[in-house]
Write a protein that binds this DNA or RNA. Structure first.
Ligand code: SF4
Ligand code: SF4
Lengths: 153, 153
DNA sequence: TATATTAAAGACAATATACTCTTTTATATC
DNA sequence: GATATAAAAGAGTATATTGTCTTTAATATA
């Protein structure tokens, strides 16, 4: 469905959304902390975060007290925004099932009529889910962000 | 979404479904013909077809006049059957979005509540689509199986 | 200004997926 | 039975993705 990089990006941004409401004078979170907390390979996560920063989703700051932070408030950033930055939205638009070049309504593959309905639902689902609401559920302990449940902070 | 092998498997089985109603005294289709017609790498397709045969979806026959054929009538074989044989059904059951081990209703990831609804719809969609109906649409020219439209046969 | 901390950058390594080649085996047909 | 055709089997190659390492640059703070 999604690349490993994309999954890590989703986890990391949700983690940042969780932090953003909570640390008063500490606006940035070091990448090492995120990687540690979520069990994501540190060096790999750095590259992913660079990409997210290039796409304007994150702010980065070097030096002590540096790290990364969401570029906008968590409730204005959707899971789809994150997916779009890493894997792109092609899976919801053109490259879905049989991935024929130039496919679509005029030149459909055999699954098109069925799939065209579903993919809109999927895209909407990711678009309507913003990082804040997800982060709140994680903080409440209703869902987990990593391999083990995280305790409420 | 699906591996290349899985996509090729779907295309090939639909092609066979298309043939099955049409060739009277020629029950088997050579893999080379399928690969040629659909623009799939021949050697790769052979391996995929071996897997489908091992899983009981296809019958194979060596020698001249040999080839492969569907093991059941096309209207009793679903697209989900083909997907299950190659990529498995994990994406519809356990390994969907964030792919945490042991996840599910009790230990959900942040997308679980949304996704759990969608994945059932997706699985049903592939389960309710059998190869015959798809093949008929291809034969009618309503949909295409390869990079260019196939003409009605 | 010196130091410690952290991101940026890019080369590199490991793994997984996609694809190819060669040899062998079965069997229909002549 | 000899021959030709096509699948079976398995080793090998190529490419993409995932993950690691090292060096450099920025900057907050002491
Ligand atoms: S024809 Fe439709 S369903 Fe098929 S791959 Fe193209 S956009 Fe997707
Ligand atoms: S928690 Fe649910 S949605 Fe998330 S990966 Fe597991 S099964 Fe899929």
């Amino acid at each position: 469905m999604f690349s490993k990089a994309c999954i890590y990006a989703i986890q990391a941004t949700i983690y940042l959304a969780q932090q953003s409401g909570e640390r008063g004078g500490k606006p940035y979170t070091p990448v090492a902390e995120i990687a540690q907390a979520l069990g994501i390979p540190f060096q790999f996560l750095k590259k992913i975060i660079q990409t997210l920063a290039e796409k304007g989703l994150l702010l980065t700051q070097r030096s002590a007290k540096g790290g990364v932070a969401l570029a906008r408030t968590a409730n204005t950033m959707t899971v789809l925004d994150v997916i779009a930055a890493i894997d792109g939205v092609e899976m919801f638009t053109t490259e879905c099932i049989l991935k024929f070049p130039g496919c679509g309504n005029e030149k459909p593959c055999p699954m098109h009529n069925h799939w065209a309905v579903e993919r809109v639902r999927l895209q909407k689902m990711f678009q309507q889910t913003n990082l804040e609401e997800v982060a709140v559920n994680v903080s409440k302990g209703l869902t987990r962000l990593g391999m083990i449940e995280m305790k409420a902070t």
